[in-house]
Simulated assay, not measured.
Amino acid sequence: MIYRIVFFLFFITLSCKNEKKNKIVTQHNPFEHINQTLENEKAIELFYNAKKEIEKGNLEIASLLLEKSLDFEKNPIILNELGIIFFSEKRFEQALIVLNQSILIDDKYYPSYINKSRVQILQNDLKNAETTLNKMLKKCTSDYWISYANMYLAHITTKKETIDCEKGINYLKKAEILRSEPELIPQLNGISEALKINCG
């Protein structure tokens, strides 16, 4: 029997400064907004074992398990998760490599675009982060993920290098449906406050 899962571990903090060693970044898991699945039984077993190791803070072991999982199934979910671990460890270039691989395998697995843009934002590569999100928007038909991309686009407009009040306000309006998610309200409020400070 093939087990199918709808699962990804994926962070939403607007500041991913993580001072605790071997601690994964804060994660948000909107299962109902993901269509992709894992199908290979061995890949699923390794993936969930990796999740257990992540919960223990054993990120190195978790990344090895995810890499083994890829031997059984090349899947954007696994690659996205591996990218998050690399992100958490501040291994940004490696994170970008696996997130790009995830997008190459399935260019409609939207969490990988979001996470790629987060890496680029932390690298202060704001123009490329914006490009990443706009590429996603051209392919995306999900209102949820469109709103998610707009939230991060709004965030980019609050940076001193890319301040754009009009764009920021418009992006934030397009992200309002995310207020139905309690985990995202602090981020939305933070962007709103930053726009008020920057734009008066």
Rank of each mutant, 00 (worst) to 15 (best):
F7R: 11
I84S: 07
I85T: 01
E161I: 03
K74Q: 15
L133S: 11
E161H: 07
I54G: 09
L153M: 07
N124F: 13
A149G: 15
C199S: 12
L46S: 08
S102M: 01
F31H: 12
S63I: 02
G168D: 04
S88C: 07
L14I: 15
E53A: 15
N22D: 14
Q120F: 10
A50G: 08
R179H: 04
E93Y: 02
K74T: 09
A95R: 04
I84H: 15
I163T: 14
L14Y: 13
A175I: 07
I197R: 15
E89C: 00
Q36E: 13
H28W: 15
A50T: 09
K90Q: 11
P111C: 03
Y152N: 09
Q120S: 03
I177M: 15
F86G: 01
I2D: 08
N58I: 05
N128I: 10
N198F: 07
N100R: 10
L79H: 04
T26M: 13
N124E: 15
K20F: 12
I78Y: 09
R4Q: 12
E181K: 01
T162V: 00
L96M: 00
I5N: 05
N128V: 12
E45Y: 09
S180N: 14
K90M: 01
F10N: 08
D164V: 02
L122P: 04
S112Q: 05
N58K: 13
N150Y: 08
K127S: 14
I5A: 01
E53V: 12
N35Q: 15
N170D: 14
L82R: 03
P186V: 01
Y144V: 00
L122F: 12
R118E: 12
F92V: 00
I44E: 12
N58M: 05
N58G: 10
V6C: 04
S142I: 02
L133T: 10
N49P: 04
L59P: 00
L14R: 11
Y113M: 05
L96S: 06
F47G: 08
T141W: 03
L14A: 09
N128T: 14
A95N: 10
L137Y: 06
I78D: 06
S192L: 10
E161T: 13
T131W: 02
I156D: 12
E181W: 12
Q187M: 12
Y109I: 02
M1C: 06
Y148C: 06
E73Y: 06
E193R: 14
Q101D: 13
Q94K: 14
Y171E: 03
L178H: 02
K116S: 02
P30N: 00
L82F: 05
G190A: 07
L126E: 06
L195Y: 09
S112I: 03
T162Q: 15
T132V: 05
Y109L: 01
S63G: 01
T157E: 03
K68M: 05
Y148P: 06
